[in-house]
Write a protein that binds this DNA or RNA. Structure first.
Lengths: 231, 231
DNA sequence: AGCCTTGTATGATATATATCACATATACGA
DNA sequence: TCGTATATGTGATATATATCATACAAGGCT
């Protein structure tokens, strides 16, 4: 791949990702020089919980899930990230390790930028540092809400939450091809895959939401939001 | 209160709080000038979720809980903080609002430092900024573990977790006067106060942990840790 | 085309935990 | 000292959700 092409793919990320927008032309040059692309198939681990953060991951295309792993226990799916996102992590300025795994959930291109460069940019570019920390804060606040949802809501409410999250934050349409299977929906909603099936059936029977194989359709957004608030 | 006395109370905080240690003498002077103390009785709100972060709170004496509030739902007790801690918050560089409430759980002296000063220190003192962000990251990682504990463990495991947290992080002794009532233990462990009573009775019957009124005694640390890992 | 694996659905049952009702203790003010 | 409020304990029952067993469907491979 020549420089021009690289410039092209990166320019997309720069446009969509507020973190990159804080960088000067020279700084971006430097990032170009210390980055590399890799393409992952669905289900492949992009970064493993516990491993050192040698490079920071930026999603170029595809989708990835952030999961909390615990030996002998089911995974906890924290969130789904879409392009173009620089995946910040709270361990970056502590133990320099990943505290969750990043796993692709469809064909995904990830860009790896050397952490050394990121640290240098941190020292030099105050605005970049600020946005970086803001991003970590955002994920923290997101987590507070995940906590609330999982603790306070019943199964239907939690599934409604998942669907609304995917609709609003990821796919943006009432109709979408879902990239999470039933088990992953379960891991996001803190329930079993069997219960996911049952709740999905209820939602379909009531004409609120239809998930047939991987084709999702929100039939009644108002009721879905009501169920998410619920009861 | 004269300058000498103020200097004395503050010097304690400076010794115990890594955040303050990053400041120069001049910077500390400036903090002194833009701070004020208030004493809170047990149960009083030190900072309210949703309100603007005009001042950053540093606990001087006493204990406080950080709680997630949700209208019409029970509170979620995120953690307990002890002196001397500068209570950082993920909203500080986002919407500048508290995303949890800070509530005293015993007679507590809190020191309020103007956020304007904190922001200035941020620009000038890189090390201070670094430690600040580290602290936010630490709370984030703590939250991941809270997530795991609440999702993966049964009631006994969750109560054992609470006790071990209080023992290791807060009181440091096998014997301690607990400042959380049964409801607060329930809010920390995601269960009802009735269930807390029942589990505490079991732990007492098995000679593992005794909580009589507010006097807590860990009788068998090994078994308690085993229950926390559990099963 | 048939076979095997993997994902999904669904019913019967088990189980953890909440809820409700009440009892007891402890603190607190008149 | 009493009476009232508040925190805690305990039992009986209800309920949400998991588990287990099995069936069905859809792809991929030979």
């Amino acid at each position: 791949m020549n420089d021009l092409q690289e410039g092209f793919t990166c320019s997309e990320c720069i446009e969509k990702c507020s973190l990159f927008k804080a960088l000067t032309k020279d700084e971006l040059e430097e990032v170009y020089e210390h980055r590399y692309d890799t393409t992952f198939r669905s289900g492949e681990v992009i970064a493993k919980q516990g491993s050192p953060i040698s490079h920071i991951v930026s999603l170029s295309t595809g989708l990835a899930k952030l999961v909390l792993e615990t030996p002998g226990k089911p995974d906890i799916l924290l969130t789904v990230v879409k392009p173009t996102t620089l995946i910040t992590s709270p361990g970056m300025f502590l133990d320099n390790r990943y505290h969750f795994s990043i796993v692709s959930i469809k064909e995904t291109k990830a860009c790896f930028i050397s952490m050394t460069i990121i640290r240098q940019l941190f020292e030099r570019n105050h605005e970049f540092a600020k946005r970086f920390h803001r991003s970590i804060g955002e994920r923290s606040i997101m987590l507070y809400n995940r906590f609330r949802n999982i603790i306070h809501k019943n199964m239907a409410g939690r599934i409604a939450d998942s669907i609304l999250f995917l609709h609003k934050e990821i796919y943006g349409e009432l109709n979408f091809k879902i990239d999470l299977n039933r088990s992953e929906l379960a891991e996001y909603s803190n329930m079993t895959k069997e219960s996911v099936s049952r709740i999905l059936k209820e939602l379909k029977d009531e004409g609120i939401f239809d998930l047939t194989s991987d084709h999702a359709t929100i039939l009644n957004l108002d009721r879905l939001e009501q169920i998410a608030k619920n009861g």
